[in-house]
Amino acid sequence: CHSECLGNCSQPDDPTKCVACRNFYLDGRCVETCPPPYYHFQDWRCVNFSFCQDLHHKCKNSRRQGCHQYVIHNNKCIPECPSGYTMNSSNLLCTPCLGPCPKVCHLLEGEKTIDSVTSAQELRGCTVINGSLIINIRGGNNLAAELEANLGLIEEISGYLKIRRSYALVSLSFFRKLRLIRGETLEIGNYSFYALDNQNLRQLWDWSKHNLTITQGKLFFHYNPKLCLSEIHKMEEVSGTKGRQERNDIALKTNGDQASCENELLKFSYIRTSFDKILLRWEPYWPPDFRDLLGFMLFYKEAPYQNVTEFDGQDACGSNSWTVVDIDPPLRSNDPKSQNHPGWLMRGLKPWTQYAIFVKTLVTFSDERRTYGAKSDIIYVQTDATNPSVPLDPISVSNSSSQIILKWKPPSDPNGNITHYLVFWERQAEDSELFELDYCLKGLKLPSRTWSPPFESEDSQKHNQSEYEDSAGECCSCPKTDSQILKELEESSFRKTFEDYLHNVVFVPRKT
C-alpha cells in the first residue's frame, strides 16, 4: 500500500485506493498535508475557505447554543480562536489581540433580562453583547459592586439597553466600559436606550469621564423622579442622539420631579488639616426662599486615587461607600458681607490618608415646582503625618564578641513616609551569675543571650482551647457569634421535631 494509506488498500502504491488515510483526505486521495488554498479540518480532512465560511455563517444565523462559528488559524479551520487571539470578521482569520481579548457573548432569543446578581454573573467577562440587555433589578445585597464585577467589562451592545423598574439602582456607572450601543435591534418605538419607572436612579454616568455613542435609535425617559433633566440632556449631547427624540420621548413632568437638581456650584473657602482632623468651610448658599434650606450634607471617604465619582458603590438597598454628615444651616444675616460661612470639623480620621470630599445642599421643593440647590466639586484632601507606631517583631542576635545583629519589621501604621529608623542602645553591667558559677561542674549549661522565638506554653494553649472559665478566673470563653447562636437554635429545633416524629412513629394507638 501507499505510504499515506492506513489499515489496508485495494490497489498497491495508489493513494486513492486506501481504506483510511494516515494524515489527511483531499478529493478522494490521501495526502501528507493540505496544500494551499485548503485548510486542515478536524485533523483528517482538507477543506477550502468557502466550506469553513459556510459553517461560520450557519452557526451565526441559527443562534443555536453550542454550535461553533468556525475560524481560520495556522492553516486550520477550527471552532474558535485560541487564547490571546480574536477573529477578523472580513476573512475569519485569528489575529493577536492588542491588550485583553474581546469576548463576544451571543444571547438566546436576542435579549437577556438581568433581574438578579445570579443572572448578571452569566455575563461575567463579556466585552461584546450580541443582542439586547434588559435591566430589571428590584433589590439585593452589595448590588453596585456585584454588577460592576460582572457587567463592568461590557464595551458594546449590538441591540438596545433597557432599564425598567430597577428600584435598587442609583447610577449606571457599573457599566464602566460601555462605549457603544449599535441599535441594530430596537425596542418598540425605535428606541435604543429605554429608561422607565426607576424610582431611585439619580445618575446615568459621570459624563466628564465617560463617552457613549448610540449609532441608531432614540432615547426614552419616563417616570424617573430623581433623575434630573440636565442629566438626560447631557446624554443626548454626548451620545449623538440630540435631535432624534420626539416631543413625548422625554417626559418633562415625570423626570426629576422629586430630585434636588443642583444648578449652582458650592466653593470651599477654608481648608485646614491635622493628622486626624480636617476643618472645612464653604461659601454660604440661600435659595430664593431661605426657609427652603434644610441644611447641608457632607460626604467623605478614603480615596487612594483621584478618580472618585459621587455615586460609586451606591445602591438604593443601603450600600453606600460614603460617610454622610448632616449639618444645620448657619444663622442668616441681613448683611451679605457678614454672612457666616458654614463648615464642619471632621474628626477621627487616619493620618497621612487622602480623602475625597464634597458637600451639597438639602432643600425642600418650592411652590413653583422649581428645584434649587448647590453642590461642590469633589475635592481631595490629605491629612498630615504623625509619629508612626512601633516597629514590629524586633530580633537581636550576637554573632561574635563585638557585634549584635538587630532586625525588625516595619510598623503596622507608618502614618507617613518613613525615611529612617533611630536605634538606641545602652551598655549593661555583666551578670554576677557568670562569676559565681563553678565551671568545672559536669552538665553545666552556660547562660545564653542568643534570641529564641517566643512560644506559647501548654497552660496558655489549654486556656485558649477551654470553653469555660478556669477556677483562677484568668480566662473566659469568647462570646458566641450570631451565626453560632442561630445554628444552635436550628439544631435544637431539629432535635425537638425529630423526637416528636419518633414518638408518633414508635407509639401507635392500640386498636379498641
Rank of each mutant, 00 (worst) to 15 (best):
Val104Asn: 02
Leu107Arg: 05
Leu108His: 13
Glu109Ala: 07
Glu109Arg: 04
Gly110Tyr: 12
Thr113Met: 07
Ile114Glu: 00
Asp115Gly: 01
Gly125Leu: 12
Thr127Met: 11
Thr127Arg: 07
Gly131Ala: 04
Gly131Met: 01
Ser132Tyr: 01
Ile134Trp: 11
Ile137Phe: 13
Asn141Gly: 13
Leu143Met: 15
Leu143Pro: 06
Glu146Arg: 09
Ala149Thr: 12
Asn150Asp: 05
Asn150Ala: 08
Gly152Ile: 01
Ile154Phe: 01
Glu155Val: 15
Glu155Asp: 06
Ser158His: 06
Ser158Cys: 13
Ser158Met: 10
Gly159Ser: 03
Gly159Pro: 00
Tyr160Gly: 05
Leu161Met: 07
Leu161Trp: 00
Leu161Asn: 00
Leu161Phe: 05
Arg164Cys: 04
Leu169Val: 12
Val170Ser: 08
Leu172Ala: 06
Leu172Met: 14
Leu172Ile: 15
Ser173Tyr: 10
Ser173Phe: 06
Ser173Ile: 07
Phe175Ile: 13
Arg176Phe: 03
Arg176Ile: 06
Lys177Thr: 13
Leu180Trp: 14
Ile181Asn: 00
Leu186Asn: 05
Glu187Ile: 11
Glu187Arg: 10
Glu187His: 09
Glu187Tyr: 03
Ile188Cys: 04
Gly189Pro: 13
Phe193Pro: 01
Tyr194Gln: 07
Asn198Glu: 00
Gln199Ser: 05
Asn200Pro: 02
Gln203Arg: 11
Asp206Met: 06
Asp206Tyr: 03
Asp206Trp: 03
Lys209Trp: 08
His210Lys: 13
His210Thr: 01
Asn211Trp: 13
Asn211Val: 11
Thr213Leu: 07
Thr213Cys: 12
Ile214Thr: 06
Thr215Cys: 10
Thr215Leu: 06
His222Glu: 11
Tyr223Arg: 10
Asn224Ala: 01
Pro225Leu: 06
Lys226Arg: 08
Leu229Thr: 06
Leu229Phe: 15
Lys234Glu: 14
Glu236Lys: 13
Glu236Leu: 06
Glu237Pro: 02
Val238Thr: 05
Gly240Glu: 06
Lys242His: 06
Gln245Tyr: 06
Gln245Trp: 05
Glu246Gln: 15
Arg247Glu: 03
Arg247Leu: 09
Leu252Lys: 10
Lys253Phe: 11
Ser260Thr: 11
Ser260Ile: 12
Cys261Gly: 02
Cys261Thr: 05
Glu262Gly: 06
Asn263Arg: 12
Leu266Ser: 01
Phe268Tyr: 05
Ser269Thr: 08
Thr273Glu: 05
Ser274Lys: 12
Ser274Glu: 10
Ser274Asn: 08
Asp276Met: 03
Leu279Gln: 04
Leu280Cys: 04
Arg281Lys: 12
Arg281Phe: 15
Trp282His: 00
Trp282Leu: 04
Glu283Gln: 00
Pro287Ser: 06
Pro288His: 08
Asp289Val: 04
Phe290Arg: 05
Arg291Leu: 07
Asp292Lys: 04
Leu293Asp: 03
Leu293Thr: 03
Phe296Gln: 14
Phe299Glu: 12
Ala303Asn: 05
Tyr305Phe: 09
Tyr305Met: 14
Gln306Phe: 03
Asn307Thr: 06
Asp312Tyr: 05
Gly313Ala: 09
Asp315Lys: 15
Asp315Val: 08
Ala316Tyr: 06
Gly318Lys: 04
Trp322Leu: 02
Thr323Asn: 13
Val324Phe: 09
Val324Met: 09
Leu331Met: 13
Arg332Tyr: 05
Gly343Pro: 01
Gly343Val: 02
Trp344Leu: 10
Leu345Lys: 06
Met346Leu: 10
Met346Arg: 01
Arg347Cys: 11
Leu349Gly: 01
Leu349Lys: 01
Lys350Ser: 11
Pro351Tyr: 09
Pro351Phe: 06
Trp352Lys: 14
Thr353Asn: 02
Gln354Thr: 05
Gln354His: 06
Ala356Lys: 02
Ile357Thr: 13
Val359Thr: 02
Lys360Gln: 01
Thr364Ser: 13
Asp367Thr: 10
Thr371Ile: 15
Ser376Asn: 01
Asp377Ser: 09
Ile378Val: 03
Ile379Leu: 09
Tyr380Ile: 02
Tyr380Val: 07
Tyr380Thr: 14
Val381Ile: 13
Thr383Val: 03
Ser389Met: 05
Val390Asp: 04
Val390Arg: 14
Pro394Ile: 11
Val397Tyr: 14
Asn399Leu: 09
Asn399Val: 08
Ser400Val: 07
Ser400Lys: 13
Ser402Cys: 03
Gln403Val: 03
Ile404Met: 13
Ile404Asn: 01
Leu406Pro: 00
Lys407His: 03
Trp408Met: 01
Lys409Phe: 12
Pro411His: 02
